[in-house]
Nucleic acid binder design. Sequence first.
DNA 1: TTGTAAGCGTTATCAA
DNA 2: TTGATAACGCTTACAA
Lengths: 334, 334
Amino acid sequence: MAATIKDIARVAGVSIATVSRVINNLGGYNEETEKKVLAVAKALEYRKNENARSLVQKSTKTIGVIMPEVTTAFYGDIIKGIEDVSYEHGYSVILTHAGMSGARIHESMNLMGERRVDGLIIVSVELHEAEIESLSSLGILFILLSTKTNREDTPYIKVDDFSAAYTAVNYLIENNHRIIGMAGANPDDSIAGSPRINGYIQALQDHSIKVDLNLIKAGDFSFESGKKAMQEFIEHHAEVTAVFCASDEAALGIISTCFENDLQVPKDISVVGYDNSKVSHMSIPPLTTVAQPLYEMGREGCLSLIASIQNKIKIESKVIPHELVIRKSVKKLS
Amino acid sequence: MAATIKDIARVAGVSIATVSRVINNLGGYNEETEKKVLAVAKALEYRKNENARSLVQKSTKTIGVIMPEVTTAFYGDIIKGIEDVSYEHGYSVILTHAGMSGARIHESMNLMGERRVDGLIIVSVELHEAEIESLSSLGILFILLSTKTNREDTPYIKVDDFSAAYTAVNYLIENNHRIIGMAGANPDDSIAGSPRINGYIQALQDHSIKVDLNLIKAGDFSFESGKKAMQEFIEHHAEVTAVFCASDEAALGIISTCFENDLQVPKDISVVGYDNSKVSHMSIPPLTTVAQPLYEMGREGCLSLIASIQNKIKIESKVIPHELVIRKSVKKLS
DNA sequence: TTGTAAGCGTTATCAA
DNA sequence: TTGATAACGCTTACAA
């Protein structure tokens, strides 16, 4: 079907080697042959076969990305960062999701192996010993984004969830809040759950505020878990003046339930979210929230990976700084 | 580095042909050799090279996806549909974005061509004559999602934006609204802009309501364009009782500005959005909005494409039904 | 400056 | 049931 360098060679009356040289701009041929080859290539609508080239070069110029099922703007931003950098460096990205709580993770890794991606980026998936094992056995360079493992040798880029949560709660305390609830975090999630809860606790303790475990409402980071938490605060802990949420969506849930119960944010209750997702500035009131630089995370991760591929250097893990984006959902108490 | 079938053949003492047969479960070998080959393959941690296979089979089992720069949950859902179907059929998806208003579209298509994807899905990108031309010249099967061209022969799947807008406005009219504004649509966008505006106009006309072009506030589907539109309504058209928005984000902008001006939704003003994005049920009040079945669109599109690849049949364009999701942002006037 | 030919890891044809 | 071998489209010594 499509023309190959053989076709060009035949039509142009040169060898395939020469065609290859011209196509790849390698030099070492006179202008005349170059012109002829280029003309024929154009006439035949030649398009190089990246696959065949990969085979001999033993490099596919491809980055694999594995992420969880969830489809939020969160991943969109990271992907965009990855794709931009890949594009700039002549790499393509091949994408797969690992299924709810990583059910499909092994198939995903296998697929990436068979496709011979040059590097692998795993986003937000919690990896256990078995997965790390098969990941290493793939023999493919990889980096984790927004997640990590308990092994030293697995490189990652993420923010420090503990200290980000600490910052957020500290901000509430600075605004004179003393009875602060927490909502939306899953304590069994050792990446995004427990560290944020611990950050919350530490901030309170550092200010000599007694920690009341009843004020920590577990959840799954969802809007609904925020709603439910606020319902419980209203029923049993009317004394709460502020809530720190483990996600923006949970924060919106808090606000929504407040609204239904005629409580005003931030007048009656203050709220801080986590993610700085697109919705956080669309809410009423605009949400004060912890920002993770997602796009940059995607970029940086992909950049490190490609550098590592090209220079065969080890990837350094990196904790990137978070930021508290202050909008209008927190009231300063006097 | 990684073991090949040659290595297996050598170690197992059989020919590479036999190894290939065993690996691919083709039958025609006795149990003993099968066991031996499988054992050696395992021992050597053999992993097939999908690339090499692609070369001889002239099929990469790969679907290319091109979409615009924008990173919203909108695309996430579509991608997920595509990826799920691909996965189920043993295809991989390779993703690229075409840049702001398609700036990178040619490079993207080129890339997909060089990667020899078996099929191509283009999401939401407006295609002009030049692009369609080079798309056809690629000789790759493709389908458009949530967009179309003015040519008969380019298959697409999308909802009918005109009639979806009509439905939304009609609903407002049924609720006895007579002075209805429109916000957020870009009239120059022939896919998602003008058809929605026209649907709005037609619905009014069919109910003998005079169309006031001043009530149509153009925009770019963003939160900000919604805010701006509402500001203008408040200043110049206080008589407006309802606003139809070309996106949920614009609708949130409307609500936000209303809130700042002490107008309550839906008590003082009713709002209908478009997209049924995740935020639409998180807003205050929950948003009545037009739903496009994004995930299904991704699935169906990918399904048609793969069917077309495998059976060499032509892809039929399809207009899929929209739905009006009724929540709480519209008030019935008496 | 150009061509010949080997080889990348497979599949597939044909013969044994 | 098995094995040789050509082929897929390309890059890259090496030779001319």
